[in-house]
Design a protein around this nucleic acid. Sequence first.
DNA 1: CTGAAAGCGCTTACAG
DNA 2: CTGAAAGCGCTTACAG
Lengths: 340, 340
Amino acid sequence: MAVTLKELGRLAGVHPSTVARVINDDPHQRVSEELRQRILALADEHGYQPNRLARSLRTKRSNVIGALIPDISNPFFALMFRGIEDALAERDYSVILANTDDDSARGERGITMLRERQVDGLILATARRHDRAVQQLIAEHFPVVLLNRHTDPIPPNAVVPADYTGSMTAVEYLIGLGHQRIAHIAGSDEMSTGHTRRQGYRDALERHRIPFDPDLLVGGSFRDQGGYEAMQQLLTLSIPPTAVFAVNDLAAAGAMRAANEAGMVIPHDLSVIGFNDLSTVAQTTPRLTTLHLPVHAMGVKAAERLLAQLLGERGFVEPAILPVTLYVRDSTGPAPAPRE
Amino acid sequence: MAVTLKELGRLAGVHPSTVARVINDDPHQRVSEELRQRILALADEHGYQPNRLARSLRTKRSNVIGALIPDISNPFFALMFRGIEDALAERDYSVILANTDDDSARGERGITMLRERQVDGLILATARRHDRAVQQLIAEHFPVVLLNRHTDPIPPNAVVPADYTGSMTAVEYLIGLGHQRIAHIAGSDEMSTGHTRRQGYRDALERHRIPFDPDLLVGGSFRDQGGYEAMQQLLTLSIPPTAVFAVNDLAAAGAMRAANEAGMVIPHDLSVIGFNDLSTVAQTTPRLTTLHLPVHAMGVKAAERLLAQLLGERGFVEPAILPVTLYVRDSTGPAPAPRE
DNA sequence: CTGAAAGCGCTTACAG
DNA sequence: CTGAAAGCGCTTACAG
C-alpha cells in the first residue's frame, strides 16, 4: 500500500537516493529539473508519504517530545497541554502524553516508555520538590523542561507561575480588607506549588505582624473535596476565620460549598480567594476572586524552551516565572465586624 | 550513552541476536541459563533500553495510535481522551494527539502527519456527517474508530452516544411537565451530534402532536456564547418558549446566563436541559438538568475497539451506541401557567 | 548531476 | 544452544 523511496526509484528508473534528494529538497546537490519534475509527479501520483520512523532511526531525531501530566482530564492541565501541542505542531513536532495521577511509580514508567520511544525531550508537569527521576534526567543532560511545578532549588529549565508573589498578593489583599483571621487551605508540601504558596501565606502574615495560628493552616488537597473537608474543619474552630486563601480554585470551590452548607453567606461572612482562574471549572456563585495564571502561555513557553534546547541553543540561565494577577470578583469583601 | 544490543553482545562475547533473544524472552529458542543470566545482568548494569523506533521499523507495528480531537482544552474531550489513554497505556500502546479546532484542513494535515509517523490506527473525534477524509481511510481499510461523532450512515466502527434517544427523552420529559412551547438550541447540522439531537427534538414534538414552530429552532453552537446568543434571540419572540433543550451543557449554561440577565427565574419562568453532564463545566445555579454520558468509558471503548481491529479480530458488525441517562436536577420544572 | 554503499538498531528465518 | 545474514525505509558522505 504505502509506496517507498525504493519503489519510486524503480518506477522512475533512478537510484533511490536520487529520489530522496528530490523529496527532501536536498540543498547540497541539485538534480536536473526534468528528472525532478518526473519524480515529484510520481510521488504525487502514488501518494508517497515518508516513513518518519525510518528517518528518525537514521537521523537520531524523532521530532516527538514526551509530556508527563498528572491528569489530562483536569481542565487546568488540559489547557496547559493544549499550549504545548500548539507550539509543537507549528514546528512539526508531535507529543506523546502519559498521565501519572501523581503516582511516582507511574511517572517513572512513563519516562522509561517515552525514552524507549526515542522522544527528543520531555516536558514534566509532575515534578516533586525532591525528585530522583528528574535529578537523574538532568544529570544525564537529557533535554527536559519542568512545567508548573519545579524541583528545589528552582532550576533554570523551569516554567512556573509566581506562586510566592501570588499568594503574598492574595493575603495582603485580604489584610487590606480588614481581615485578621485568615486561613490557608494548603496543597501538598511535596510540590513546589503547595509549598511556595504556603510560604507566601506565612510571610504575608508575618510582614503585617499578624501572629501565625497553626489552626488556620489546614492541609487540603488540590481537589474540590479536599477544600470542602478543610473548610469543615476550619468551621469547628472556636474563632473561625473570616477569610480563606485556597491553594487553587478547586479547593476554593469546595470551601465555598462547605461554607454555604453551614449557612454562611459569601462574602458577607467569609471571603474566599482561589488560584489559577480556571473559568471553566470555578463557575462559583458568587464569582470567585482568584489569581489569574497564563495557563495556555505556560504550555507554549515550556515547549519553546524545550525546542530551544534541542536546537542546541545555550542553556537558559534563569527559570521563567510567569506573572499572576489578582482578579477581584465577588467572593471577597470587608471583614465582618467582630461579634460582641 | 544509550547502550545497544550490539554493544551488549560485544560485552558478553556473544552475537547480538543472542542478546535479542534473551531480552525479548524469545519463546521459540531457548538460551542456556548461565548465558541468559549473564546477559540480563549486563543489560541491567548498563540500563539497556530497547529502541522502539528500530523495533517498529522492523516489525511494522509502532504500538502508537493517533487521536484527532477538536480541542483538548474542552473538558468533554479531555475526559474522553483520558479514557483513550488509560485503555491504551494498559496494553503498552501510546497515543499522539492532534487538535483540529474543527477545521477540516487541519484535520487532514493531522491525519497525514499521524500516518507518516506510522501510527497503527486512528481514533477520530472529529468526523463530519459527510467526510471525505474518513471515507478515504475506510476505503483503504486503515484501522479507524469514530468517536462521539459519526459519518452518515453510521458505520460499525463508531462509538457514539444515543443522541436520538437522549433528545427524545429530554423533550418528552419537558412535555410531561406541561411544556408546549419548547425550543431547541441546535448544534451544527454537519455533525451527527447536532443533526441527530435536532432530529430527536422534532420527532418528540411530532409524536406528541405539538406543531413544529421554526422560530423555536435556533442554530447555536456547541459553546457557551452560542447558547447565550440563541437564548437572546428566543427571548425576542412574541410568545417565547417556556422550556429549552440545548445541544450540550455549554450551550445550556449560556442560555441560562442570557435568561438570568433578562430577569427570568429558572426553573420558574423557564426550564433548561443540557446534554453531556459535564460536571466540571456546568456548575450552574440552579444545577443543570441534563443527559448524562459515560464520557470516559466512551474513550476506553473506542480504544478497545481499535485494538481489537489491530489484533485482527473480525470487524464489528454494529456500532457501539452508548446509553445516556436523564439526570433531573434543578433547572427544570412545571410549565408556568399561561399569562392572561 | 547521479549512483552505490554504509549504517541507524532492531527482528527473525535459516543454518549448523 | 548460538551464529550469521538479511532487511525494515530512510539519510548522507563518498565517488565519479
